[in-house]
């Protein structure tokens, strides 16, 4: 008998896998640059052994490049750590603005691959909701991916988190390619996440927006 995991768990695992793969790619890129800088130091040593003078400024530049990549990898690992811990509590009071910032940072690679500029200014005052942070990240990531698919021209998406009139709202705007009925979005995965989180995702082609409206 075929055993299939719970569809919601499957959705969450797919999301976790996608983000982990992207993060591993980013870390690997930083490691590749560190590797080449270490190789360059070896090259300089070989040249010094052959009598070519070592230039301290050249060495300083290599050290600076290495530090830059260490800081970059450290930021990526911090994001990964925050993301991994978001699954710790099934329900918690969550700062939506911060969580949206994390989702965007985790999506760097996806955004860069689409060559789309994403504009996001976190709300000035915290916008809070009691929710499941991991699955909220999943739903907002899916909304962002759909926004990237339907962005522009120009290739730009704006993201805003607002307290709303009665409940928080996350709006993805500038979706010039959004059309009536041809998006297939929200799909099955999003429907599961929306049911769990009691969030309404509205696709509004006239306004060129996708909005995630939290329960009041």
């Amino acid at each position: 008998m075929e055993q299939r995991p719970d569809p919601l768990a499957e959705t969450g695992l797919q999301f976790f896998g996608k983000i982990s793969a992207s993060i591993s790619h980013e870390i690997n890129n930083a490691l590749a640059i560190l590797n080449e800088n270490a190789g360059l130091l070896e090259d300089l040593c070989v040249m010094a052994e052959k009598g070519k003078a070592l230039d301290p400024q050249r060495l300083q530049k290599v050290a600076g490049n290495q530090l830059k990549q260490v800081r970059r990898a450290n930021d990526i690992v911090k994001r990964m750590n925050r993301f991994s811990h978001s699954i710790d509590e099934p329900v918690s009071q969550t700062n939506i603005g911060e969580l949206m910032g994390l989702v965007l940072a985790l999506s760097n690679r996806f955004i860069a691959n689409k060559n789309i500029a994403v504009d996001y200014a976190p709300p000035e005052t915290p916008v809070l909701a009691t929710t499941n942070p991991f699955f909220l990240e999943n739903l907002l990531f899916n909304c962002l991916m759909q926004a990237l698919e339907t962005a522009g021209p120009p290739k730009a998406v704006s993201v805003a988190v607002t307290p709303g009139e009665s409940a928080p709202v996350v709006v993805f705007s500038g979706l010039e390619g959004l059309a009536n009925g041809d998006e297939g979005f929200p799909g099955e995965q999003e429907a599961r996440l929306m049911a769990l989180l009691k969030i309404d995702v509205r696709v509004e082609p006239a306004r060129k927006t996708i909005a995630a409206i939290f329960p009041g």
């Binding site: 890129n29 590749a32 640059i33 080449e36 800088n37 190789g39 360059l40 090259d43 040249m47 490049n65 830059k68 990549q69 860069a112």
Partner: peptide
Amino acid sequence: DDENDFLDVMSERMKS
């Protein structure tokens, strides 16, 4: 490669 830092160090090593 889309990483400038990677291009800089790789090209220097390849040129040498």
